[in-house]
């Protein structure tokens, strides 16, 4: 399929795919074949909500998170094609969801952000909400634990490093703290409750404790929330 230049006017979506490690490159190649302009792949760790595996300490599954930018008009088509190839409708085959983009910019070419109006107006739609919690390294496990004990489901942990506005300069070295990001997809109606819970338990209202971002999701695939499983 022809690759076309992306413009904000056509409405863009960010397609997020979470699959087991090893499949990431396949998804990336697939996205390229389908004409995606921009795709990147991050390493993550999934969490399985199974007591048996937890006891054996085998509940960490290596995952890959793929971010693909697609035109909103073609997102259903691309999701369906991905589903045909990677079978998200089956359990534990991965999940996929789309978040509408509000703006786009190319660093060298554009002088200012081109805000997409379709993206902005859409951001209250959808039954699901993506929660991204960024905390210090080591605390991601407790984020997952808090959400699982409260009856929510696991998430995908992605390693990151932080950069606070005020740089900590220790002995002339700039310290960049290690961070972990937890990506969770929850039902919209229960998202605020989980956000409040995390905020309270992790003291996110105090500075330097971490941040929590909620994003409206327009389409999902491969979520099995009722069956106590996450892809």
């Amino acid at each position: 399929m022809a690759r076309q230049e992306l413009t904000a006017e056509m409405g863009l979506s960010l397609l997020v795919v979470v699959v087991n490690r090893g499949k990431g490159s396949k998804v990336l190649n697939f996205a390229c074949e389908k004409g995606a302009n921009d795709a990147s792949c991050l390493f993550g760790t999934g969490t399985v909500n199974s007591r048996m595996l937890q006891m054996l300490e085998m509940n960490d599954v290596d995952k890959e998170v793929i971010l693909i930018v697609v035109p909103t008009a073609r997102e259903t088509e691309i999701l369906n094609q991905l589903n045909m190839k990677f079978h998200f409708e089956r359990k534990n085959h991965g999940i996929a969801f789309t978040v509408p983009l509000a703006g786009i910019m190319k660093m060298k070419r554009d002088t200012s952000v081109r805000w997409s109006h379709t993206g902005e107006s859409q951001h209250t739609q959808g039954d699901y909400v993506a929660l991204l919690t960024i905390v210090d390294k080591g605390k991601a496990a407790s984020v997952v634990q808090i959400s699982q004990t409260a009856g929510y489901f696991g998430g995908t942990i992605i390693r990151a490093r932080g950069s606070a506005g005020k740089l900590n300069v220790v002995l002339d070295m700039i310290v960049e703290p290690e961070k972990e990001a937890v990506l969770m997809v929850v039902e919209g109606a229960r998202a605020n409750h989980l956000a409040a819970l995390l905020k309270q338990q992790l003291h996110l209202d105090q500075p330097n404790r971490g941040i929590l971002i909620q994003m409206g999701v327009s389409q999902t695939m491969g979520l099995f929330q009722t069956d106590q499983h996450e892809g």
Binding site: V69, I104, K106, M107, K108, T111, Q214, M215
Partner: peptide
């Protein structure tokens, strides 16, 4: 974004993209 463009336009060999997502 304006600042980044300023920096990348003048002295950068490579390009990058910025995507903005609405947050609640």
């Amino acid at each position: 974004c304006a600042k980044i463009h300023e920096k990348f336009e003048k002295d950068s060999a490579r390009d990058g993209s910025i995507y903005i997502l609405p947050a609640r």
